[in-house]
Write a protein that binds this DNA or RNA. Structure first.
Length: 452
DNA sequence: ATCGGCTCGCGCAA
DNA sequence: TGCGCGAAGCCGAT
């Protein structure tokens, strides 16, 4: 079912007698467990109209490159085929999303879209809400609990948001029924890019091609689901024990799929709930509480991607220690080329550059060390964001911005004061050795990189 | 190997 | 107003 709290009308325009209901797909790039798509079909059926689905390929998307575009297009190819089976036409155009959606709204009765938690996503929706002459209805499908139902403010920590989310799970963590359109839109006369010839399409895009596609992670809902199956079968039981061991792979790897909306967090959570495993609780904590905490941060803090957005105590303590001497300082380029004195740090950087995804535990160490080895925390902040957004398949995401902020103390607690970090949590390579074998990790990455 | 202290701010209990 | 406690730790004492 689609709870009322997932539905929001973004403008005050009258419904038209158009040719179709337009679903402007953006953050939920899937046909499975997609409340916005199901809402569009239900609405279209009640109006006796077909549904048209539109996606705008924006070549100027910040940090859009070969890696994230090919991952996304693999997913959209699957979306197109799956919609076609449901007699729904999928229109993919090389246009900025808000411009394309506005144009296609001319012949629409209403426009439906999904919800985003970042600045650009929200400004596109505002643009469309103002510039079209029919209703724009936003459906929240990428969180288990609708963000404003959880809390109306920026939360302080996981501890403060956890009870607010958990008490609402019985209301929102529910299956979603698939609907069948009464009217087909397949014969509507609209052009679309051809996704069957992916290579040619990718070649035609004016994007940064210096970051190659990941050799390990391929986009699309079916890839997401098969990775999830593997995770449940082979890793979930020992997840709690081994997830923080980067020399092994005990992670779900759902991040990139969730980022593009190729899989639904509700779908994942319902699957996990069926399993009796010691990893169940810890995994659901990460999937729901920590993920939705990160969306709470970007949604309520307009400075989510800058040093300025940090809590006062974090900025204060880091600024007090800004002049402390650094044993090492590196430039953005040094970091990007993985040229530091620390083999573990370099391995983490290379993992990100060559795999497209750094192990979660190393992300903390990696970020903390950039703070330690940069002239100022503000410069460090800029470098973390730059590298994360450029190389991570799940970059440019609420989780990424919150992960960076965490390295600077966000959602964390203060610790004993020390050089450079002040009261911010410090990490060192002794900690890595205490928990796992970082040499095995570095060897794994180095062996891989030397084969390229 | 294990343990307490470090330090700030939230939110509940009183 | 007081008090307990927190997303991934470090460090020194035992």
């Amino acid at each position: 079912m689609i709870q009322n709290e997932r539905i929001r009308v973004l403008n005050n325009k009258p419904q038209k007698n158009g040719d179709y209901v337009l679903y402007w797909m953006q953050s939920s790039q899937r046909t499975n467990f997609n409340h916005a798509l199901e809402y569009s079909i239900i609405k279209a059926n009640s109006l006796n109209k077909p549904v048209l689905v539109f996606f705008g390929l924006n070549e100027k998307f910040p940090n859009g490159n070969l890696r994230n575009f090919s991952f996304m297009l693999e997913g959209l190819h699957e979306v197109q085929k799956s919609l076609e089976e449901r007699k729904i036409k999928f229109i993919l155009l090389k246009t900025s999303p808000e411009v394309g959606a506005t144009q296609l709204s001319n012949n629409a009765s209403i426009v439906v879209t999904d919800k985003g938690y970042l600045r650009n996503e929200r400004s596109w929706r505002n643009y469309v809400a103002i510039n079209i002459d029919c209703p724009l209805i936003e459906i929240e499908s990428n969180t288990v609990v609708p963000i404003e139902e959880v809390s109306k403010k920026e939360e302080y920590s996981a501890a403060t948001i956890r009870p607010k989310i958990n008490k609402l799970l019985n209301v929102y963590l529910l299956p979603l029924k698939q609907n069948i359109p009464i009217k087909s839109s397949l014969s509507l006369p609209y052009d679309t890019l051809n996704l069957d010839n992916m290579e040619e399409l990718i070649k035609s895009l004016k994007i940064d091609t210096t970051v190659p596609s990941s050799p390990h992670l391929f986009g699309g809902t079916s890839e997401a689901m098969s990775n999830l199956e593997t995770f449940i079968k082979k890793k979930l039981d020992r997840y709690d024990e081994l997830r923080n061991n980067p020399s092994l792979d005990y992670l779900s790897n759902m991040g990139p799929y969730l980022h593009f909306g190729q899989i639904s967090p509700i779908f994942i959570a319902l699957k996990i709930l069926e399993i009796d495993s010691p990893g169940k609780g810890p995994y659901l904590e990460e999937l729901i509480v920590r993920r939705e905490l990160s969306m709470n941060y970007t949604y309520y803090n307009p400075k989510y991607d800058s040093f300025e957005g940090l809590p006062e105590w974090c900025k204060r303590t880091l600024e007090i220690h800004e002049k402390d001497t650094r044993d090492y300082t590196y430039s953005k380029k040094d970091f990007e080329m993985a040229k530091t004195h620390d083999p573990y740090w370099n391995a983490a950087q290379n993992e990100m550059v060559y795999y497209g995804k750094m192990h979660g535990y190393m992300r903390m160490y990696w970020g903390k060390k950039i703070i330690e080895w940069t002239k100022s925390p503000k410069e460090a902040y800029e470098i973390l964001l730059y590298l994360n957004d450029k190389y991570e398949l799940d970059g440019r995401d609420a989780n990424g911005y919150t992960g960076v902020a965490w390295c600077f103390g966000k959602h964390d607690r203060p610790w004993s004061e020390r050089k450079i970090f002040g009261n911010i949590r410090y990490m060192n390579d002794k900690g890595l050795k205490r928990k796992f074998d970082p040499d095995a990790y570095a060897k794994k990455i180095n062996d891989y990189v030397s084969k390229i």
